[in-house]
Amino acid sequence: MNRSTRYVLFFTGGALIAVLYVWGVVGMPSFGSHDHPYRDRAVHASVAHATPNVVSSVNFDQRGFDTLGEETIFFASVVGAAALLRPSKEEREQHAANRDNLLQVLASTRLLGYVLLPLTLLVGFDVVAHGHLTPGGGFQGGVVLATGLHVLYVAGRYDALDRLRPVTVFEHGEVTGALAFVGLGFAGLAVSGSFLANVIPFGTFGSFLSAGTIDLFNFAVGIEISCGVVVLLAHFFEQAIVLRGNPQARS
């Protein structure tokens, strides 16, 4: 494809998107107004299923199929990145003793890392577990859990981080989380005849065991996202710290 064809393609596509965007924005309710028909229906449906966090209700109850799509996109992108970041022929692992000493950090940074590690993991579990009640859920908590683990790297302990996260275990964890989401969908299909239906008794509004399947979805997503982010970062760390070689040698 030559340059002028690309320009024509870009400007045609860009103009179409601009028209659609302006059309969409003009039709929106004005900023800060009190008239939101979709919000009213979503809140009503959420309260009917004893779910205080309406966002979680939209994600896992009212619009579960969209979330299944998003989880699949995340899953596919981790697999894709892992395939791209696999060691090339020119690269080889260097022994732990030979890795560069850039990991020397201030004692205060190391202490902060050790203090923050359990705190961040606790916050992550809390955000996942209470996703149906308070802001957050499987995605947010999963990312907090995974990045919380990497506080160890900030503390200069890549060796400890490396021992703490056997990558194959987390690869299996990611698959398990993704399958659990689909499995919960089929459970809804088996019990009520519709895929991803919320089939568990809703319980009391606001109590921990409530909102039916939403918390189970949060746990499934939490496992998938935390494991997926750990796997993704593990490949980046492997490339940056463990492998040495000249990536430019091929070009």
Binding site: V55, P135, V143, V144, L233, F236, A240
Partner: peptide, 24 residues
């Protein structure tokens, strides 16, 4: 909910990936 996602992804995850890529 969105604020929490943005905080976790945008301030920790993405800068870490950028730094690791630069280091590589």
């Amino acid at each position: 909910d969105v604020a929490l996602s943005q905080l976790a992804v945008g301030t920790a995850f993405v800068p870490l990936m950028v730094m690791l890529t630069i280091r590589k």
